[in-house]
Design a protein around this nucleic acid. Structure first.
Lengths: 144, 144
DNA sequence: TCATAATCCTATAAAATCTATAGGATTTAG
DNA sequence: CTAAATCCTATAGATTTTATAGGATTATGA
């Protein structure tokens, strides 16, 4: 399961994608519209900014806005940033690898195989899910 | 990420699959061979037994053994039992569904789509991963 | 220049979950 | 009847998640 932090991040980014190139958006506005605790959201947006996914403008009239195009931000990178590994086991994680203590020998462990497949399928789907596509999908669903 | 509890369960079940139809196996033996804290493992095996995945024999000469054939136990059911939902969002979970608070309208939420795909692919892979296949895989890898 | 409005930043509180153990009750074999 | 094993409930300890507090910093514009 994704953490609330991660879900908040995704929702906030979709919101900002909808306001792409319309100037900085206040934390308060996003918090209110998406029902996210403001102070928590503040920390999340800061992290997204440090990761160069968002830009910010300080002071009066400031706020947050997308650094990259909505087509260039995908769910895989957001989740990795917020929650860490996407793989279900540390020993099959590409970005957060750790050896499993229970396995005596990783090379002969028959369990990893399935989790490698899950990892690759998951990365493929999430990597292809951009803010752009999510927005388009919302429009399609809203039109029904 | 799977919990340790879940990883322990999988390893214990693979161990018991290797001893299928060879009589009850002591908790202590599994704990020692797979480096799992004994008391923790005890609780896990009890849960697997209550779920009819394992059988047990009490008293002297007792222990645990598989209730079903290794070909009939798969990773999907083990993970669901130990960790709950396999889906990454509660609002796309088949067995542990909950509405997302952030979404105003689930029907028009563009985010769910990708997570439904991830869920289906994951269930397909884990559902097809039986103890039997894991054992066979270990033999193949060990022969290399 | 200065008041105001916003983000920035660190620390920490509160809650929930995960991991592990304690201790005795119960059952069975011999 | 004793020893060896699971059964069961409770709970302690550790870690992670969620959320907030409080002030520092920065930018705008009157």
């Amino acid at each position: 399961m994704l953490s609330k932090k991660c879900k908040y991040a995704i929702h906030a980014l979709v919101y900002l994608a909808e306001k792409y190139q319309q100037g900085p958006v206040h934390i308060s506005e996003i918090a209110q519209k998406r029902h996210i605790p403001k102070k928590f959201l503040e920390a999340i947006l800061l992290e997204l900014r440090n990761a160069k996914i968002l830009h910010s403008k300080k002071g009066k009239g400031g706020g947050y806005y997308l650094h990259q195009k909505p087509a260039d931000v995908n769910l895989m990178e957001i989740i990795r940033l917020m929650d860490g590994a996407i793989a279900l086991l540390p020993c099959v994680s590409l970005n957060y690898y750790e050896a499993c203590e229970e396995c005596r020998n990783e090379k002969t462990c028959g369990i990893r195989d399935a989790f490698i497949k899950v990892r690759d399928e998951t990365l493929s789907i999430l990597g292809g899910s951009t803010l752009d596509k999510i927005m388009k999908r919302e429009k399609v669903l809203a039109a029904k």
